[in-house]
Design a protein around this nucleic acid. Structure first.
Lengths: 197, 197
DNA sequence: GAAGTATGTAAGTGGTTACTTGCTCTGTCG
DNA sequence: CGACAGAGCAAGTAACCACTTACATACTTC
């Protein structure tokens, strides 16, 4: 593999493990299997390396929801599961970024290369459900989306930290969240099928 | 004020700003307005100081919910608001703890001096709603509690980081969460009053 | 007033950090 | 074969880290 890419990958991994201050150039070079001097010759400084590494690492595509809702339970279950898995996979890196944004605001700018935030995908989906009469009109779509996404986000962040609180299985949890979410927005289990042509 | 307490407070504050590695003994002593030597004479080492400071800082009482539910909307709104304010106030410290648990597992042990976790308070409340027939029986109380608490937690953690996503007001958000939560567990707006004697 | 306690200043310990300099090795290309 | 580019090695820079020693100063307490 290319040495630059090895260094970028190692930088992201070590940063996820130890944060900015803990990600020493020595440790990154060792992880990449190259000498520390090569790191500086390639990127000039630790800051330049970390910025490029985090920008590359935050390029994770957000799963889309169908434009035409057909089976909300299935579609939302799959989407929630994908959302959780993405967040859970990068949870260490996310926790470091969250804790260091105040000190290094520039690191969130490269993480904000997101074209759109997951909440707005779900928000649009809720709007479409409302448009077809499958969800109550007095629901604020943005708030509803934020609630489900927030619950999933918390599972991904906290689950492995306080296991005695989050004792249930993740499958069970996501299914439960989706079911309660649909009830909350007035999209009951049987109501969709009966309204289908 | 006592010098020990000043140092403990300063340690917690600097830790919340800069994390463990960034909370240098020099900076803590400066923040407390004492000399660095006094810090070491009082606590022996940075580690001992930080452990004591974080243990003290995590002693935040969890608001209780009434044993006898009477007005779910009001009771849950007040509880959610208190929960959010607590989390939002210590959000910087929480973010640091979350990002450093993997490296320093001992810091979560002192934070776990919680007698009970907020989720279990809400879980018990949902059980009591179910016992009186105010909530659906097919709802998993622990999951329901985790969903609302997770949504509030996410608001407290992320709100000030990506304001363009969380554009609505926090009052509006908490009210919406409580309303959707009650719908989700089958505790509709009018259903409680009609069942009251 | 003497003794003891708590705090301060000054200076320095060894270790680690990001980063640099000078030189050597190794592979590729003409 | 010879030129050259990219990588490594050894050593060293100044700054910062947690922590220590030696000594002076204030304040209380008997």
């Amino acid at each position: 593999m290319d040495i630059r890419e090895r260094l970028l990958g190692a930088a992201a991994q070590v940063y996820a493990e130890a944060g900015y201050r803990g990600a020493t150039t020595r440790r990154i070079a060792q992880q990449a299997g190259v000498s520390e001097i090569t790191l500086f010759r390639q990127f000039g400084s630790k800051e330049a390396l970390m910025l490029e590494a985090l920008t590359a690492a935050s390029r994770t595509a957000v799963l889309a929801l169908p434009d035409e809702p057909a089976d909300p339970v299935r579609e939302l279950s799959e989407w929630s599961r994908g959302r959780f898995e993405t967040l859970f996979r990068i949870r260490s890196l996310l926790r470091k970024v969250m804790s260091e944004v105040e000190e290094h605001p520039e690191i969130i700018d490269c993480a904000k290369s997101y074209p759109r935030h997951p909440v707005s995908f779900l928000e649009q989906y809720v709007r479409r459900l409302q448009a077809r009469g499958w969800a109550a009109d007095d629901i604020n779509p943005k708030l509803a989306a934020a609630m489900l996404v927030g619950a999933i986000f918390t599972e991904a962040m906290v689950r492995d930290m306080i296991p005695e609180v989050y004792s249930y299985g993740i499958e069970e949890a996501l299914d439960g969240y989706v079911r309660m979410f649909l009830r909350a927005i007035g999209c009951e289990a049987g109501s969709v099928e009966t309204r289908l042509p």
